[in-house]
């Protein structure tokens, strides 16, 4: 079902779109603080959707709902649902194991956070957790993931080196490879380039374009030009509300809501 707010998103030819997830009336509370207010939107499959908004608007909170990171702290509460499609699983359902959710929905954080292990083991980690032990199969999957993250050429001769020996940009691509290794359906990026230099940033942005054909992307970014460059859809959030959701190329040229316009043009007080 397409609600009026989704129809407003002005997404062309709705019938031909395939959705990977649908957020329905999502509310989130940090204790008594109402952090996300009745958020609804759909995530189109194999597209990148960017969440933008000023600090404290709830964009990272929303992103973290997608892999149940909030479960790690007491007093956090979800209402509403995030339904994975096409199998219609509400990943916020208490009966759904968050570990299983995180297998299907990977995450890349602001700062590269490789494990204190070798390059190979970093990527193989998720696969081993899943019980994969066959050496040849592991090697194949690690190679595929490293190639997917455009890192293979740079590291194939030193897979046993400690991951910390890589540069910041390489470490971040390693984290992407680690996330890709388990074949996630959705990949979450929480400001993935804010700790990187412009060249490493552009290689991560290229990578996001390249992996879209196999994984759906949701990215939080403070850099609006980055949102404009890498995403197909953009959601503008403010004080826990989803103000506007639309096709990126339209939203950055002609936003429908005055508040979105004020934010993206730097008229934000």
């Amino acid at each position: 079902m397409v609600t009026s707010s989704q129809a407003r998103a002005a997404t062309p030819a709705v019938e031909t779109q395939h959705y990977k997830a649908e957020v329905r009336n999502l509310n989130f509370y940090y204790g008594s603080f109402h952090s996300l207010k009745n958020i609804s939107f759909k995530l189109e499959a194999n597209k990148a959707t960017a969440l933008i908004g000023p600090s404290g608007c709830g964009k990272s909170t929303l992103l973290r709902c997608f892999n149940r990171l909030h479960d790690l702290y007491p007093g956090n509460r979800y209402e509403g649902s995030i339904v994975l499609l096409p199998d219609n699983v509400n990943i916020l359902d208490r009966k759904v194991d968050p570990i299983e959710v995180r297998m299907r929905i990977g995450m890349v954080f602001q700062k590269p956070n490789p494990f204190p292990k070798s390059i190979f083991e970093n990527v193989a980690y998720g696969l081993r957790v899943r019980g994969m032990n066959n050496k040849t199969e592991l090697a194949d999957r690690v190679e595929a993931a490293l190639k997917g993250a455009a890192l293979w050429e740079e590291v194939n001769h030193r897979l046993d080196d400690l991951a910390f020996n890589l540069s910041g940009g390489q470490q971040q691509r390693l984290c992407i490879a680690r996330a890709l290794a388990t074949d996630p359906e959705i990949l979450l990026f929480d400001e993935p380039t804010s700790a990187l230099d412009p060249i490493a940033t552009s290689s991560i942005e290229e990578l996001i374009q390249d992996i879209k054909h196999k994984v759906t992307i949701l990215i939080v970014t403070h850099n609006m030009q980055q949102a404009a460059r890498v995403s197909d859809y953009t959601a503008y959030m403010y004080l826990g509300d989803l103000i506007e959701f639309g096709v990126t190329s339209e939203l950055f040229v002609k936003p429908k809501d005055k508040r979105t316009e004020d934010y993206i043009t730097g008229r934000f007080g």
Partner: peptide, 10 residues
């Protein structure tokens, strides 16, 4: 310098 958007870009 500014990578203008929306009304500024137009």
């Amino acid at each position: 310098k500014r990578q203008p958007a929306a009304i500024d870009l137009r």
